[in-house]
Design a protein around this nucleic acid. Structure first.
Length: 984
RNA sequence: GUCCGAGUGGCGAAAUGGCAGACGCGCCAGACUUAGGAUCUGGUGCCCUUAACGGGCGUGCGGGUUCAACUCCCGCCUCGGACACCA
């Protein structure tokens, strides 16, 4: 039961009543603190009460159009469902055992403020938070604490939930999920099967069910790889062909093997210096049979659709660079081996990829990656006549040279290979290629600066326009011919800029871009190559040899070919094992083998199933999915968390995520309306999630083509940390500032800034802040300290500013002695009314733009004005508007004040104040008057004064006249409503 | 090395072509007080000067465009981030 303002003393359950009884007791407040002052104790009480109220009322339950979460007809939720929807999402947190520090909730508070503001504007808002709880850290934490990860995970989630609840986040708790819940990972496995059971149709440029490919092959509408008619192939051959086309496939290929973690990793999880992003262990390339996801099939769409997204420029740029699309040409070079008895013998041609086919007349060599498959076919028995000694690497034969070079290249660690300024190395293979445009004989080398994984693993050396090739040419004394005219005065080596073609036969005189196209045309016409596109993006390595992850819904029969389970057989539960910690190795021991923990669950691995061929014994896949899997689609389960028949009902998905061309334009891809999180997920999570979403779109499961329409990267909270003379971190909370220096237990210490964490001994927790000031103060401080996207240092002592603001607001509305409203029904004076409505206008705009810091500043200004203007009783219209405007930021105190002002209903859905246009216009305007760029005077004129009268008033001003002097000014500029400038 | 972002009081910041420093912390002064690390009121960019007024300088550095530049353009410096032999 909620109370009305006039009957405060009659209620027993109202938050306000208990508050008074507590705060008036002596041990809670010093003797001279008024009984109804807004203190931390009172704040905490109000906060607990309203959190309970919101929970019991289901205040933040967002109704779905259909299904279990649909609104009861006639309920308040049904009314809510009438409004336009808004889907707000935070990046999936991992429930850490270490607990939260004040940096963690920054984004959660921001989305909560935004969501609450939207509710007050009539939107039906979906906002919840789930937990991404599979993965290495959870497993490592469990190993550390000696408990099963399921137990520690559950415990950590419970802790985090209660920590976040204390902040008053308006989440729909019915929609919270955890990736580790079998009811959730069933759908992770289901999507995996969708991907596994699909292929990419290049013609239609979309994924299609694999059955449709089988059908096409069977009917001959599509040819098998070698043209053999489908029915002449054995069942096993047919399966192999099909499996090779799937979007999820097993591949025996060089992968990133990390002995220190005992698992393989994706490219995205390996840092530039060849180490694991997690744990910083060395990573080695090993040939292993692993699951891959054919994300490369989506490379073009993943690049192109970035243009449709409302994302930070930097993130789209990072994705673009990661996908690394470049347009160029494939050029085929015929090769010859000149040392056979017959003179010259043909060897297989070599394809190179180049983005500058126009420079081919300057080509002086062909260089292959050391691992290139054709290297061995090129090697003559002995060095060709005239081979310069420094091309041979000191070896007696080409075979010997290549072997030695390969061994040396393999011995170079990833770190050394990256070292800047590393000299180019390589050896001659003894083979020659023929330049297709002029028949010139070009030596073929191998060199480790050519990467097997990019393009075709072979390049043509064009030193005039490529620095690497220039270096290589100098090293091996190869001729250098420029084919693009460098600008006058250019004194560098390779010239990689634009220019006009020279030394290039029929291309001479063409500007560079036209020469490129002309050469592509020539190559295709003469059968020597074709225009082509290459990507840096590789397929996504999708299996891990760990315990704490989603098992694959895949089994094998005797053929060792993967077989999908049926949907009805999901979820495949993670088996209990005695030893769930993975087998890890000495981090530098590359010659080790992954040993998945699941392989040890013999009873689980071997399974009897009927998959359409009668009951047979199968072997389960013993890998688990990477921890990115669960976060690739979680917004879809937020939408329909209890749906056990479907991933999510298409009606619900289209309601929450479908394209809204009327609101967002004709190209709108749909997706979550606002997605807030750290920039560290710019490539990994956001790329994977876009990929999965597009597959689901192709297969007709979702109506949006992108998962996240608008992305916002929040900054980080840095924290000061202090080191003593030995460089050891000391407890930051015990450091005091003395005369501009810092001191800990009497000894001077040095300040630095870093991440908040145990190792820097500088953790500040939300609980500490709530205990000292209350959650509302904490929220206002975090939102007020700067722009959301900027990182900034935490300063505990500054939090009090936010607290004083809320105290003042409280005092504007209530009497600190009695707790009753001290407001008047009299109208606000003109000045206050204008300030109020300017504030409403400004706060609205700031809220929409996520500029909460300036919104708070405006609210403080208004509060300060009202405090001074109405020391005894503020006008109700002003006080109520202030309470409503502060509500998204400090919801508990706002609810409490709103109730004490006599409102029976929560203000969660009360209308956010609207500015009255009449009151936004002032009747007079003060203009600063500048003379030669300096403000020399001020004039006040009626708001509707025309330019001429403003000008006249400015020149008439005494001070201004003093600077202008007797002669007429050269120029007078009036910027309406802004400033007058006089030039003399 | 390449690309991206940032540089404003003692500190966090505001102003995106029109009065630089809103708002907050801190600091100074005052009120209340046994007390103040609570709360309230006022002041507070730097320098010169005054009894009061007033004046000069000032947004990393150097140049430019403009009546007017933190804001736009060119060059540089510093810091942070991403990528890093991608042909």
């Amino acid at each position: 039961m909620l109370l009305s303002a006039n009957r405060t003393t009659e209620s027993e359950t109202a938050p306000s009543e208990t508050a008074r009884s507590e705060t008036s007791s002596a041990e809670l407040a010093p003797a001279d603190t008024p009984p109804y002052r807004y203190t931390a104790q009172l704040a905490e009480h109000i906060e607990r009460t309203w959190q309970q109220h919101w929970e019991s009322e289901g205040t933040f339950h967002a109704p779905n159009p259909v299904g279990e979460l649909a609104a009861e007809p006639g309920s308040s939720a049904a009314k809510r469902a009438q409004g336009p929807k808004l889907f707000v999402q935070d990046m999936f947190p991992y429930p850490s055992g270490a607990g939260l520090h004040v940096g963690h909730p920054l984004g959660y508070i921001a989305t909560d403020v935004y969501a609450r503001f939207a509710r007050m504007n009539g939107r039906n808002v979906l906002h919840t938070l789930g937990y991404d709880a599979f993965g290495l850290p959870a497993e490592q934490y469990a190993v550390q604490t000696g408990q099963h990860p399921a137990i520690t995970t559950e415990h950590n989630i419970a802790t985090m939930r209660s920590q976040l609840r204390a902040l008053g986040l308006g989440h729909d708790s019915r929609r919270s999920i955890a990736t580790t819940d079998p009811g959730y990972y069933r759908w992770t496995q289901w999507i995996f099967l969708q991907i596994f059971n699909s292929w990419y149709d290049e013609e239609q440029d979309k994924a299609r069910p694999i059955d449709e490919l089988v059908e096409q092959l069977r009917l001959g509408a599509r040819l098998t790889p070698d043209g053999t008619p489908w029915e002449q192939l054995s069942a096993q051959q047919q399966r192999q062909i099909i499996n090779d086309r799937r979007l999820a496939y097993l591949s025996e290929a060089p992968v990133n093997w990390c002995p220190g973690l005992g698992t393989v990793l994706s490219n995205e999880e390996v840092t530039a210096d060849g180490r694991s992003e997690r744990g910083n262990f060395p990573v080695f390339k090993r040939n292993l049979r692993q699951w891959m996801m054919r994300i490369t099939a989506y490379a073009d769409r993943l690049v192109d659709d970035l243009a449709l997204l409302d994302w930070p420029e930097s993130v789209t740029l990072m994705q673009r660079n990661w996908i690394g699309r470049s347009h160029g040409a494939r050029v085929d070079f015929a090769t010859v081996n000149e040392t056979t008895a017959e003179g010259a013998a043909a060897t297989p041609p070599i394809s190179v990829f180049t983005t500058r086919p126009g420079t081919i007349f300057g080509c002086n060599s062909v260089v292959l990656a050391p691992e290139h498959l054709l290297v061995n076919t090129l090697l003559p028995p002995h060095w060709p006549d005239g081979t310069p000694p420094h091309w041979t690497g000191g070896a007696d034969t080409p075979t010997d040279a290549v072997e030695r070079y390969r061994a040396a290249a393999a011995a170079v660690s990833a770190v050394d290979r990256q070292a800047t300024g590393r000299a180019k190395t390589g050896v001659f293979t003894g083979g020659f290629a023929l330049n297709p445009v002029n028949g010139q004989r070009l030596p073929i080398f191998i060199a480790d600066y050519v990467l097997m994984g990019y393009g075709s693993g072979a390049v043509m050396g064009v030193p005039g326009e490529d620095e690497r090739d220039w270096e290589f040419s100098e090293r091996f004394e190869l001729p250098i011919i420029r084919t693009v005219q460098p600008p006058e005065g250019f004194d560098g080596e390779a010239y990689e800029g634009d220019g006009v073609m020279i030394n290039s036969d029929f291309l001479n005189g063409l500007p560079w871009p036209q020469a490129k196209q002309a050469m592509i045309d020539w190559l295709s016409e003469h059968g020597h190559g074709a225009g082509t596109v290459t990507y840096k993006l590789r397929d996504w390595l999708f299996s891990r040899q760990r315990y704490w992850g989603e098992p694959f819904p895949i089994v094998y029969d005797d053929d060792d070919q993967p077989i999908a389970l049926n949907d009805a057989q999901l979820p495949v539960l993670l088996p209990e094992v005695d030893e769930y910690s993975p087998v890890t190795y000495e981090p530098h021991d590359a010659a080790t083998e992954p040993a998945p923990p699941l392989a040890k669950a013999a009873d689980w691995v071997s399974v009897e199933l009927d998959l359409g061929e009668g009951v047979k014994t199968y072997r389960r896949d013993v890998n688990v999915m990477p921890n990115w899997a669960g976060s690739c689609y979680y917004q879809l389960r937020y939408i329909d968390p209890a749906n056990s028949d479907q991933l999510c009902d298409p009606v619900n998905e289209r309601y929450w995520m479908g394209p809204e061309p009327l609101r967002h334009g004709a190209d709108d891809p749909g997706g979550v309306d606002l997605y807030v999180g750290g920039v560290e997920h710019a490539v990994l999570h956001l790329l994977y999630a876009r990929f999965w979403h597009k597959v689901l779109y192709d297969l007709g499961h979702v109506g949006s083509t992108e998962p996240y329409r608008r992305l916002f990267n929040q900054g980080y909270i840095q924290a000061p940390a202090y080191t003593d003379s030995r460089g050891t971190y000391v407890s930051a909370s015990e450091v005091v500032e003395i005369d501009g220096g810092f001191s800990w237990q009497g000894q001077p210490v040095r300040r630095e800034y870093g991440k908040m964490g145990k190792s820097l001994k500088n953790v500040v927790t939300p609980e500490q802040m709530c205990g000292e000031y209350g959650a509302d103060t904490f929220r206002v401080y975090e939102m007020g300290m700067g722009p959301l996207e900027a990182s900034r240092p935490w300063e505990s002592r500054a939090v009090v500013g936010a607290h004083r603001f809320l105290q003042r607001l409280w005092r504007v509305v209530l009497d600190e002695q009695t707790g009753t409203p001290r407001i008047t029904d009299a109208a606000a004076n003109r000045l206050t009314g204008q300030l109020l409505h300017r504030t409403i206008e400004g706060v609205r705009a700031d809220m929409v733009g996520l500029r909460f810091n300036t919104a708070i500043a405006k609210l403080i200004e208004l509060t300060n004005h009202v405090t001074v203007t109405y020391p005894n009783a503020a006008p109700r219209e002003v006080a109520e508007a202030m309470v409503l405007m502060v509500a998204p930021l400090a919801p508990h105190i706002a609810e409490e004040l709103w109730q004490r002002l006599g409102h029976a209903e929560s203000l969660t859905y009360a209308p956010f104040p609207q500015a009255d246009p009449q009151l936004l216009i002032a009747e007079t305007i003060e203009y600063p008057v500048q003379v030669n760029g300096k403000v020399r005077g001020r004039i006040t004129v009626p708001a509707d004064a025309d330019e001429a009268s403003v000008r006249a008033a400015a020149l008439a001003d005494e001070k201004v006249a003093g600077y202008v002097g007797a002669s007429a000014p050269k120029k007078v500029i009036v910027i309406p409503g802004r400033i007058v400038t006089v030039v003399v």
